[in-house]
Design a protein around this nucleic acid. Sequence first.
DNA 1: CGCGGATGTTACTGACCGGTACGTACAGAG
DNA 2: CTCTGTACGTACCGGTCAGTAACATCCGCG
Lengths: 203, 203
Amino acid sequence: MKKSRSTAPPDPAGAPPRAAERIRESARELFYREGIRAIGVDEIVSRAGVTKPSLYRSFASKDELAAAYLEDYDAAFWQRFDEGAAEHPGDPRAQLLVYLAGLAQRATKAGYRGCGLTNAAVEYPEPGHPARKVAEAHKRALRERLVAMAKQMGARDAQALGDGLLLLIEGTFASGQLFGKGGPARALVATAERLIDASVAED
Amino acid sequence: MKKSRSTAPPDPAGAPPRAAERIRESARELFYREGIRAIGVDEIVSRAGVTKPSLYRSFASKDELAAAYLEDYDAAFWQRFDEGAAEHPGDPRAQLLVYLAGLAQRATKAGYRGCGLTNAAVEYPEPGHPARKVAEAHKRALRERLVAMAKQMGARDAQALGDGLLLLIEGTFASGQLFGKGGPARALVATAERLIDASVAED
DNA sequence: CGCGGATGTTACTGACCGGTACGTACAGAG
DNA sequence: CTCTGTACGTACCGGTCAGTAACATCCGCG
């Protein structure tokens, strides 16, 4: 029974599902759900339906695979962040609140696992680690983006408002996976609104 | 069992530094600094100057040792939280801000590692894990405490203010270890003040 | 057909993991 | 002095980890 033969889908657009791609997919699911340190490479390749040498032909090490997973995560984050913003062109306050509303909804569901990038930084405190470098770069970019939006909103102190919003977002990532359903993340939008309003008001 | 007096240790006072205590100490340092999954039991006992069987005479497993470490961490947290509160009896706003100011200072130093309890929950997403149970119980208690303080402050919606403050605190834990020195945690106190003021104002 | 690149197969390494069977040093009781 | 309980160390277990070597197979292309 060569079942693996029949399970292979007829690749539609000429591009066959490369082994590296399947590995990235299963790494993304398993690393995010269980944590990077908790998942061995054998589990990843077995879920991807490939073998270990295929993994090491595309990735130099497990650490580099973790970094690749985080780069995928980073791209997916910005896509979600921006697609909400597109609904309200020129209105940074509304743009941010759309993202926050979606985040709050996800973070108050059971089984929520927070931000893969933040989680990776928790798992790898060592400064030079490939995974941590990706996570830190992402968070720096997010901070800059939030400060820029705060400035567009007309905040008296854009840095302070941007940082305050970042604290709320990271707090949602963390408490979402600590409390699950009905957690404090349900207060996210109202808290952000209150904070923004108090930060752009006239002196 | 007859009058088993021999079960009690012979010298209750002036007890020598027992192996279990030294293990707890080194577990606390290593687990917090490097992460629980990153540290093997060999490293703990070698740092404690004892041997592995001594560990397993006092703790049923590494997971139980991790839970014990988190219980110590929980006790230390509340001691720090309460000792700041003692400076301002009857003034919950000032009590909270004292704690937040200290937290912000710690979280903006290089090498900050966040909250050991939150980190443990990130490392162990599995619901029934001993370490996770301690972490979740701690966070539930913290949430209740913050909501109670919000009520004392006269917030219109004490649950919302308490949850908002929890988001800020967790966000500080996370972003402190992501950004290190000069991170967004420096905005913590001002943000909290703004949020509290906006939550207790008259309608 | 033959070539070459990508993948699978099998088996292996050395290090490390959490955990344990068993021997030993010492203190108090008789 | 022996008996006994306790606290500790020595040496080891089976399993899992990340990573690799050697070789077989598939498949598209010329």
